[in-house]
Amino acid sequence: MIKLQDITEEELLYGSLACAGCGGIIALRMALKVLGKNTVLVLPAGCLMATCGFFPQMAVNVPLVSTAFPSTPSTVSGLVAGLKVKGKEDITVLGVAGDGGTADIGLQALSGSVERGENFVYICYDNEAYMNTGGQRSSETPYGAWTTTTPVGRNKMWEDKPKKDLLRILAAHNIPYAARTSISHPREYMDSVRKAKETKGPAVIHVLAPCPSGWGTDTSKTVELARLAVETGIWEMAEYENGKYKVTKIIKNRKPVKEYIKAQGRYRHLPDEEIEKMQKQVDEYWKAMS
């Protein structure tokens, strides 16, 4: 496992205009620390592009190719092929998009790039809604959450669908390497990035990256919440490698789901019986996995 002492002091991402306490920025900064200068980054429309790539606030110190919302994986494909014909296959091509850009509008392109077996690293930073446009629900918005398109009203109460399981979608492609991880676990996360880089072929990392503005939480709690998601068993840390799905962090004494839910404004409306229902689902999932 990676040691923090060994990680470079070189900062390839600084001076972004992101909100204070942004989980997405943490995810990108950690990834670039592992991948280093010999990396080309692709960012689509979204928070990271809006806060790191607008002139004159140029916050990214590796080549960055920005692209349209559905096109992160396909832009990655073009770069991989272009760098190959230019004899620069040693450069890591890194695509980074949010949950909407990955699991919704970018899913077809991601499926294509993965299926074609191209050599790249892709990170989906999941803040569980379309945060750059003000917090609309995505297919990664969890059950029970308030978003601006699942407002709590008399007829409809909240997001009523569970999250799309990105890791298992990737597993169904028999991808060489994929991981579900969290910014709260930097060593595990950065280890996944390192593995992804070393993988010959496509490697995708799904990382939980809380959004204080969208989740209704204090800016200082970003990492703590991501950790709670893991410790309550809501967010399973797992890998798919060599054809096998593996849980990478077994939580012995899972904290109550309630602790995670009650800490966030986006669940403020949720009655206790719903939280109990969620607890039951989490318990059943882990029982089935053990």
Binding site: S16, L17, P56, A59, N61
Partner: peptide
Amino acid sequence: FEGGHPTTHT
């Protein structure tokens, strides 16, 4: 534009 040059001190 050249990267790594944030101009506004946040």
